[in-house]
Nucleic acid binder design. Structure first.
Lengths: 130, 130
DNA sequence: TTTATTATTGCGACTTAATCGCAATAATAA
DNA sequence: TTATTATTGCGATTAAGTCGCAATAATAAA
C-alpha cells in the first residue's frame, strides 16, 4: 500500500515538527481546528508511527502522546525510541529526555518497543525547596 | 479515612500475591469471577496503589497492569517503582524486570512517578534466530 | 453484646480515548 | 483526461475506567 501526500498529513506533521513537545490528540486537534477530522488525525498518527516518522508515548493518564522523531537512534535502519519522556503534572508538557537507555534483558528476550514516561514537575512548575 | 479489612480486598490481594506477573483488570476479573465487582476491583487496586502495596504499569495497548510490590525500592519511606516491565506480545505476560533505573533529569525537575514498559517476545515466544 | 458510624461494595449509568465501516474525496498512475 | 485506490470525513461503536448512590458490612462505641 503506497503512501500519498495529503493535506491532512502535511498539516499534522507540520504541527508536530514545530513543537518541542510530544502532543496528545487533543492538543493536535486544538492546533488543527476543524481542518482535519478527529479520526483522520488518529489514522495519520498511526501511519507516521508505522513509518518511523513519529514516536508514541503512553502516559498513565491513559493518553497517547506523539512526537516527531528528531534525535532518535536508528541502528541498522531499525527505529528504537530508547529514551524517556517527562510529563509535567502542572503544565502538562511532555518532553523527550535526552538520556538513552539500555536495559539488560533476560537471555532469549527480544525487544520490539519501548515506552518510558516519568511524571513530576518541571523546573518552572516545581514547588520551592521543602 | 481509615482502611477496613474487607473480603474483596483480601481476594484481590491474594490473586496479586500469588502471581509472578503484573495483571490487568481483565485478568484479575477472570481469576475472581463474580466474587468481586468490576468497579470494586478498580477501586481496590487504586487504593492499593495509594498505599504503596501495589504498583501500576501502563502498556501502550492502553491497559493498566498491577503487580504486588515485592522487590520495590522504598528509599526514605517513599515508594519508587524504578524498574521496567516487560510485556510479551505473544503470550501477554507482563513481568517486572530487575534492573533498577536512574534517569538523569534537567536541573530543577522533580519526579513523582515512573512508568517503563518494554514490549517484545519472551524467551519462550521469541522466534528462532533470523 | 448490641448499636452506631462510616468505609466499602454492587449495580448501572456515564465519560473518554480510540477505532471502525462506508461512502465520498483527491492523490497518483495510466 | 481518465482510471485507480489511498485517504478522508462522518457517525456509530468499542473498550477502559470512573462515578453516583443506595445497600452492606467492618470497626468503634455504648
Amino acid at each position: 500500500m503506497k503512501r500519498r501526500n495529503t493535506q491532512a498529513q502535511a498539516a499534522v506533521l507540520q504541527v508536530l515538527k514545530s513543537s518541542d513537545r510530544a502532543l496528545s490528540h487533543e492538543q493536535l486537534q486544538a492546533e488543527l481546528g476543524t481542518k482535519v477530522d478527529r479520526a483522520t488525525i488518529y489514522r495519520v498518527l498511526n501511519r507516521f508511527c508505522e513509518d518511523g516518522l513519529v514516536h508514541k508515548a503512553m502516559d498513565d493518564d491513559g493518553k497517547q502522546y506523539f512526537a516527531y522523531c528528531a534525535g532518535c537512534d536508528k541502528p541498522n535502519n531499525k527505529h528504537s525510541h530508547n529514551h524517556f519522556h517527562f510529563k509535567c503534572r502542572q503544565c502538562g508538557k511532555v518532553e523527550c529526555l535526552q538520556h538513552k537507555m539500555h536495559i539488560p534483558l533476560p537471555a532469549g528476550y527480544v525487544v520490539t518497543d519501548f515506552n518510558g514516561m516519568i511524571s513530576g514537575y518541571c523546573n518552572r512548575c516545581a514547588p520551592g525547596e521543602a
